[in-house]
């Protein structure tokens, strides 16, 4: 659950706790999906930091495991995680193959790949 400064908050992030102002009043509730309007509201209320749901947990886990492995501390779990992600990416590639020329489907595939790489897709 990273706590980020206002400047690091981006569209699409999700608040993992209520965002509160200096007086402790709730500006945006937990679960809010940030967009341009909600970011402006945080700025206007003087909120300087907010907690958001982790987005890169799996990537970090894999990177850490690779580092461990390079240092001679093998860890099998990340290989499984890697394989699962690869499997999902292959399924997506096969699923979308017939829609290569469709711009809407290309955009959807881009997001689906992002979600799969971040471990959000569990299918």
């Amino acid at each position: 659950m990273p706590i980020l400064s206002l400047s690091a908050l981006k569209d699409g992030m999700i608040l993992s706790n209520d965002a509160v102002d200096a007086a402790g009043a709730i500006v945006l509730p937990e679960g809010t999906i940030l967009d341009t309007a909600s970011l402006a509201r945080l700025r206007e209320a003087g909120v300087t930091r907010a907690a958001v749901k982790g987005r890169t947990t799996l990537r970090r886990r894999i990177a850490k495991a690779r580092a461990q492995s390079a240092a001679g501390k093998p860890n099998e779990k990340p290989d499984h995680a890697d394989a699962a992600v690869e499997d999902r990416l292959m399924r997506l590639a096969a699923m979308f193959a017939r829609h290569r020329d469709d711009p809407l489907m290309r955009e959807l595939l881009r997001i689906a790949i992002l979600c799969a790489r971040e471990g959000l897709v569990r299918g």
Partner: peptide, 30 residues
């Protein structure tokens, strides 16, 4: 194991942009 094509008129009718779609997809996975 396939996926149907998005009907363009249907997508336009929802008025969604892809940034919002991505946020909705992320939220729904949780």
């Amino acid at each position: 194991p396939l996926i149907p094509r998005i009907a363009e008129a249907a997508f336009e009718r929802t008025g969604l942009n892809w940034r919002t779609v991505e946020a909705i997809m992320r939220r729904s996975t949780e």
